[in-house]
Design a protein around this nucleic acid. Structure first.
Lengths: 245, 245
DNA sequence: ATCTATTTGTACGTATGTATT
DNA sequence: AAATACATACGTACAAATAGA
């Protein structure tokens, strides 16, 4: 038996379907609220609630005023991240889980990009590394460096044409950025780990430039393992929370 | 400058925040519509539109009648899949992209589960294989077998405690299930590939049972490569579409 | 800079639908 | 079967934002 749905939901589905049928593209305008009301013989509030359903999914955006209206929208990365966060909110998700995924995806990502990057892209990566090439002077700089080194991975993922891969990799990086971590690099052991990590990122750029997939894979794999070790010694607790839109 | 938001959005954010602060759990009831109106000094329509925003994100569900109301909800897998589909809708996403991810994740998933599965779980997997252990008699049975062999991967992923990994793996499997594929197994070359695939799934169960991570990894990797080959010869076109709720 | 037209956003009252007791 | 408690749907009035004259 099919579940009986609210009128609002039916209207939302119908609009979705309509968007697909009309082959509307991001930026295209939907009929005005009042016209949608007539199209589906629904009241203002029903239509508006339906729009909020699509809105929350990132499929439409609305603007007031002349030349305003309801526009088809491509789901933004930020929205997708938020929705993924929501999914994980009531679930247990650990640092180990995070790194299991990073360890699986990042080396393959790196391998797939070897020899495919433009000079500009390689340069961007190299520049990013310089932001944390020196040991941090204090705890605040340490935080900045940490964020910058994560940004390296987001930049790299952005080079991929695999949209789902990109999304997941960038999402994991986002989680790491959202965590407040101080790595206590002044402790000798941690400092060594950090240094190893830096070295592997430099080696990675070389491999990417040289088009050496296998090397890129190996280097990234090693880098991920080092990064995980660095996390583990911090006993980081992940804050599971809604992303504030 | 912070973007000016609609009242509806602010209310939705406030409710989210309130859920977190009150440490509400799935199944817990929110105040009634009318009480929420008072809490945030907002009108009925504003509150209802806010609820639809949360609703679409899968965070709340509503029921009418006495004992009804608005309930906090864990985001369902189906909802998460739909939201991921939306994200990919306007983007190019190919079979190769799909398999790049499967090739990265599935072997590691298998390796992580080696020696960790209960007898029941292993039995479920073994039973699943029997559903397509014999060559299909006709094109319809072929379709059934195809779906069943994908289901194997969904079952396996379900055994993982890594919720994000599980989500992505099961999502990729879902995409494959949604595609209408006929493998033309009567062509000798394809038949051999199919047979190889089946053999590796059986070998996988053995490795999982034996607790041999490395073997599980290798076998699954091989299986993925075989599966990709089978796809490629079909020249499958992926239909990119909204999942109908 | 001000006004005007257009379009969404918010408010509010009432009626209807639905599930529980 | 009837009363109750809740969301859902409708319609109107007015507010806010914005493009263009």
């Amino acid at each position: 038996m099919t579940v009986k749905k609210r009128r609002t939901e039916n209207v939302a589905s119908a609009i979705k379907k309509w968007i697909v049928e009309q082959k509307l593209q991001p930026g295209d305008r939907l009929p005005r609220e009042i016209e949608v009301m007539e199209m589906f013989d629904a009241s203002k509030s029903t239509v508006r609630e339906a729009m909020r359903l699509l809105d929350a999914q990132g499929l439409v955006q609305t603007k007031t005023g002349p030349k305003g209206g309801i526009f088809v929208s491509e789901v933004s990365e930020a929205k997708a991240h938020m929705l993924l966060s929501n999914y994980l909110f009531f679930k247990d998700f650990s640092i180990d889980d995070l790194y299991q995924i990073r360890l699986a995806l990042e080396p393959r990502l790196a391998a797939s990009l070897a020899g495919k990057l433009t000079a500009t892209q390689l340069q961007t990566l190299a520049t990013q590394i310089t932001k944390y090439a020196e040991p941090p002077k204090d705890i605040f700089e340490e935080r900045e460096h940490h964020l910058a080194s994560i940004e390296f991975h987001r930049i790299l993922a952005d080079c991929s044409s695999n949209e789902l891969l990109k999304l997941v990799v960038r999402f994991t990086a986002q989680i790491l950025s959202d965590m407040t971590i101080y790595r206590k690099l002044y402790e000798p052991e941690n400092y060594d780990l950090w240094k190893t990590g830096l070295a592997s990122q430099m080696a990675l750029i070389e491999a990417l430039q040289a088009g050496d997939s296998e090397m890129a894979y190996q280097v990234m794999q090693k880098h991920m393992k080092t990064a995980l070790k660095l996390m583990k010694v911090q006993e980081v607790e992940m804050e599971n929370r809604f992303l504030d839109d």
